[in-house]
Design a protein around this nucleic acid. Structure first.
Length: 498
RNA sequence: GGCUCGUUGGUCAAGUGGUCAAGACGCCGCCCUCUCAAGGCGGAAUCACGAGUUCAAUUCUCGUACGAGCUGCCA
């Protein structure tokens, strides 16, 4: 039988990374077996609906490459794929009535006051188990209430005896006492189904073979099983996934600041890196490889290797992985992402990819920008790292002359001044400011002086950058700055040291 | 409170009744080197605890502790 999985989000805001992983695993399970993956919108909660959330879902599916075979915007044989539309079609009420006929569900007219009176507080928490009060209403009483237009819900009728058992493909067999199971509401008083009910009905009607979801549903699954049984339907395979937590081992929340896919992309993470990272949270491949393209994930993904224990979402490792993706990015796409950040380090108005004017007044060509881009590629983990690493190109910082002192290089303000004074005329005479030419002419000087490279290069790099550490060395920086700006900065260095 | 699930280095994790208990991130050190990266090499660091089964338990069983989830006319 062909595998069919579905991703069934509620349009309530951004896409939580837990949901994203669920969607990914559902996608991978289907694609791995050449099955089908469908998108269904579960908008049965009118109150929580957020304007625009639907667009976020579509956009996220698109950006993450989770293409579905059927969905609201991809008609298939099981539509509509939006639950509110299915409500209008009367689907859920029809099935709820089937259950009522069978005695597996019943109308309940209890008002809020009566329900409240059933609540008890145990160790600070309010708990409530419905007492089946309305189960005992006669057919005539129910009809009379219905005719009178009394608001009602339809509840599942779960016996108080016996146990219910199901097998989860990850967690194994799970058994609960039926008396622990509440007579949950199937149809709400506004006529909408609850998530639990709509889910079962739709998964069956849509031919879903594998239900994949977060482990927060593990303890309510027995109720689902009873529903499938009540209908006489075959239950799907259940695959419950371990929780993703924050550093404090609590469920990832909005407070953590990186709980949603959109949070992450705003922070400069690449969709494919997020997907790759999230795939490894709760699942591991057979080998030691960790970098997986979507296609490789599809091939390698065996959901039986999903593990049971919760996983901490580690931003540090995500950053590393994102850096790996950046390093192996093709040039065009890399530039597409990186150029805006490079440009943002040169705030002067009118700057473009082809030419920028620095705040110090130097003119840098497109070629210089290329070199900055090259320098950055192995030095960043996310693109927003760029500006602060290259700020010294735009404006020479007002640095402390003590920066010329470096024990290992054996430099100090005195010999640094000497170096700058002696190299200045060489650099003034030099016309070719390409990396190689600069290298040759300075190395020739170093050879002549008979000193270690660092004795000369440390002060030079300090003078042209004004920073303790820089991407690239003295030659790279001088090449990028060009002759005029290089000389200006060296003269400033000489002034500072004099 | 009840129910359910979980527990291998700081984090992600592999793994098995007998292993020197993989690998990755991070950390530390070394090499390279004008700094920072990248790259290469190496290091420290783990089977929650207590019983039981067994010649042998990280692995199987039970219990304890801790953590999480559920206990909504939310999903």
């Amino acid at each position: 039988m062909k595998i069919r999985t579905r991703y069934a989000p509620s349009p309530t805001g951004r896409m939580h990374v837990g949901n994203l992983r669920t969607a990914l695993y559902e996608y991978l399970i289907a694609r791995h077996e050449d099955g089908e993956f469908i998108l269904r919108i579960e908008d049965t909660d009118q109150e929580r609906f957020v304007e625009g959330a639907l667009d976020i879902i579509y956009r996220t599916m698109e950006k993450t490459g989770l293409d579905y075979d059927e969905g609201p915007d991809k008609p298939g044989d099981c539509g509509p794929y939006v639950q509110s539309e299915r409500v209008t079609a009367g689907i859920y009420m029809e099935y709820a009535k089937v259950l009522v006929e069978k005695g597996e569900a019943y109308y309940c007219f209890c008002d809020k006051e009566r329900l409240d009176s059933l609540k008890t507080t145990v160790s600070g928490k309010e708990i409530m188990l419905y007492d089946k009060h309305c189960l005992h209403l006669s057919k005539e009483e129910v009809q009379a209430n219905l005719d009178a237009g009394k608001p009602f819900v339809i509840r599942q009728n779960i016996p108080n005896e016996g146990t219910t058992t199901f097998v989860d493909d990850i967690y194994g067999a799970i058994t609960v006492e039926n008396k622990e199971l509440d007579d949950m509401i199937l149809i709400k008083s506004d006529g909408y189904p609850t998530y639990n009910f709509a889910n079962v009905v739709d998964d069956h009607l849509m031919g879903i073979t594998h239900v994949v979801r977060g482990n927060e549903y593990l303890s309510s699954t027995p109720k689902y099983i009873r529903l499938y049984d009540a209908f006489g339907w075959e239950a799907p395979v259940f695959v419950h996934l371990p929780l993703i937590t924050d550093e404090e081992h609590h469920k990832l929340s909005k407070r953590s600041g990186h709980s949603s896919f959109e949070d992450l992309t705003e922070q400069g993470f690449l969709p494919e890196a997020v997907i790759n990272y999230v795939a490894l949270l709760g699942w591991s491949p057979e080998g030691n490889e960790e970098i997986f393209s979507k296609q490789q994930l599809i091939e390698a993904f065996d959901y039986r290797r999903v593990n049971k224990s919760p996983a901490v979402f580690d931003m540090v490792k995500l950053r590393w992985m994102n850096g790996e993706y950046i390093k192996s990015m093709d040039q065009a796409r890399y530039e597409e992402y990186a150029v805006p950040y490079v440009l943002s380090a040169f705030p002067k108005a009118g700057n473009t990819r082809q030419q920028v004017v620095t705040s110090d007044g130097a003119v840098l060509s497109g070629g210089s920008l290329d070199k900055i881009l090259d320098l950055m590629k192995t030095r960043i983990e996310v693109f927003p790292d760029i500006p602060e690493k290259i700020d010294f190109f735009d404006r020479l910082p007002d640095y402390d002359p003590e920066m010329y002192t470096h024990k290992k290089m054996k430099t100090n303000p005195e010999n640094s001044l000497e170096t700058l004074k002696e190299t200045l005329p060489i650099l003034e005479a030099q016309e070719d400011y390409s990396l190689d030419a600069l290298h040759d002419v300075i190395m020739e000087y170093i050879g002549r002086k008979g000193v270690k490279n660092g004795v000369v290069l440390w002060p030079l790099r300090t003078a042209v950058s004004g920073k303790q550490s820089t991407p690239g060395g003295a030659f790279e920086i001088m090449e990028i700055l060009g002759k005029e700006e290089t000389l200006r900065r060296i003269r400033i260095g000489i002034e500072k040291l004099s």
